[in-house]
Design a protein around this nucleic acid. Structure first.
Length: 429
RNA sequence: GUGCCUGUAGCUCAAUGGCAGAGCGCUACACUGUGGAUGUAGAUGUUGUGGGUUCGACCCCCAUCAGGCACCCCA
């Protein structure tokens, strides 16, 4: 492995095995989203930096974004998240689209971070959004898409829970406790960190930026109050919808969920690995009713979430839920080339089989048959075809079923049907 | 951006500062019309990279790159 130019830090190469997993993930996401009538869409990977400047949060824009100057001198960003692009795309055709818009997407994103387990610089993200409604029922539907996906991949509520809160409710609480608007971001960050610090340090940190003893006590009581959602009309309707959708076991109120992104205005939620090793937020989302106006559109309410491929793969791995039957075999049929004299006959039968709808590899070199059979075995071919001098003379082909080792002679014109019968037997695809 | 740990054959890992190894995998042959099993033989490496210390460095020191862990932040 000398002199191989290394890949860019924090990127992953998707060999066919990894690609098969990614495709499986993609198909599972598609299934969940489409079962709720969401449509697939995609945005450019390159965006201008201004798109994020407004609302994405300083950390994300200034420290974690890939920004470079293109040959024309424009500042270009590799997109660190999708929501601002979505806002732009919708704002551009705001008078043409049929609302509520329900869209989903799966593609690559970039953040300049220190790579480690569960975190890379290039990652893939599933985004699901609904724009044009501001009802708690819409919020519940987004959470339902998510819960459907989690169920589909085999996760249960003991393993992964969706924790929900509402910034409007929090703001009313902060108001009640006499916390000024200018301090609320800091208080949110403080709440976000309570699991990561020792209780005394956490309290001291709260006092440091100006929380009074009363405020501290009130906030602590608030964080322990699992019934607080009942004081929120929105959350009351939200949980009624979740109940009606039959998803109560997957969804729970948690006053500690605040989320870092600035653009969230109402409901916020995160899915958490509750039982496993990961013990972290595996995705996040919420309501962002002001974002369209912020990128220059007419005001439009919206709700959505995003899930990264890296963390969900880790969680599935931890719970032994990685799909085991992913098909990475390039083709179920391999046609051997007996010797140079039979080259044309082999290519012909391969073409004929493909015409009949089969996926077929014809070995590209007339090497020893043993080597070709070994190759067939390794790539997982289920049927190997041989046309030697004897078969060629009689217009026949020898079909070997790799699993059983059995072999049969058939007329070349009947080969496709005979192969089809073999492949129809139970076993690996 | 910060701190700590790690880097040896394709993979998993050994090797007190004194000739760089094992298992698995790989290649060939036994098997000149057939894969898996078995046996025999073989090839594997600038010890991540670049410097330094030393008679001598996989081992000690410095730098750098990459991975992991913890911050930060988040998917």
């Amino acid at each position: 492995m000398k002199n191989v130019i290394p890949s860019v830090k924090g990127t992953r190469d998707f060999y066919p095995e990894q690609m098969a997993f990614r495709t499986w993930l993609y198909n599972t996401m598609r299934q969940a989203a489409e079962s709720f009538g969401f449509q697939e869409w995609e945005a450019p990977i390159l965006e201008s930096i201004e798109l994020y400047a407004a609302k994405s949060g300083e950390e994300l824009v200034k420290k974690q974004s890939y920004v470079f100057e293109d040959r024309g001198g424009d500042e270009i960003t590799l997109r660190p998240e999708l929501t601002p692009s979505l806002a732009r795309v919708v704002a551009q055709k705001q008078n043409e689209l049929t609302f509520p818009v329900r869209w989903w997407s799966f593609g690559p994103f970039w953040r300049y971070e220190n790579p480690q387990r569960g975190r890379t610089r290039e990652f893939f993200q599933w985004n699901v959004d609904m724009l044009g409604v501001d009802t708690p029922e819409a919020d519940a539907e987004l959470v339902a898409v998510l819960a459907t996906f989690l169920k589909q991949v085999g996760l249960n509520p003991e393993q992964v829970l969706i924790l929900v809160n509402d910034r409007r409710l929090m703001d009313r609480q902060f108001e009640k406790f006499g916390i000024p608007a200018g301090q609320r971001l800091e208080v949110s960050n403080w709440i976000d960190r309570r699991e990561k610090m020792k209780p005394q340090e956490w309290e001291a940190y709260g006092r440091d930026f100006g929380l009074s003893g009363d405020q501290l006590a009130n906030l602590k009581a608030m964080l322990a109050d699992k019934q607080l959602w009942q004081e929120s009309q929105e959350l009351t309707r939200f949980f009624a919808a979740i109940e009606a959708l039959g998803l109560s076991s997957f969804v729970r109120f948690d006053p500690g969920i605040v989320r870092g992104l600035l653009y969230y205005t109402g409901t916020v939620f995160e899915a958490w690995d509750m039982g496993g090793v990961v013990k972290r937020s595996i995705l996040g989302g919420g309501r962002y009713d002001n974002l369209l106006a912020d990128v220059g559109g007419e005001p439009l309410p919206a709700v959505g979430f995003a899930m990264g491929d890296v963390v969900i793969e880790l969680v599935l791995k931890d719970y032994g839920l990685l799909p085991k039957d992913l098909n990475v075999n390039p083709a179920p049929v391999l046609v051997t080339v007996f010797d140079p004299a039979q080259q044309a006959a082999s290519l012909k039968i391969a073409a004929r089989l493909r015409e009949a709808g089969l996926n077929v590899i014809c070995y590209p070199q007339a090497v020893k048959l043993g080597k070709q059979f070994k190759y067939a075995h390794r790539i997982g071919a289920r049927v190997t075809v041989v046309i030697g001098p004897d078969e060629a003379e009689n217009g026949q082909a020898a079909l070997k079923e790799m699993v059983s080792g059995g072999q049969q002679l058939v007329d070349q014109q009947d080969a496709a049907e005979a192969i089809r019968l073999i492949l129809a037997k139970p076993g690996a695809s």
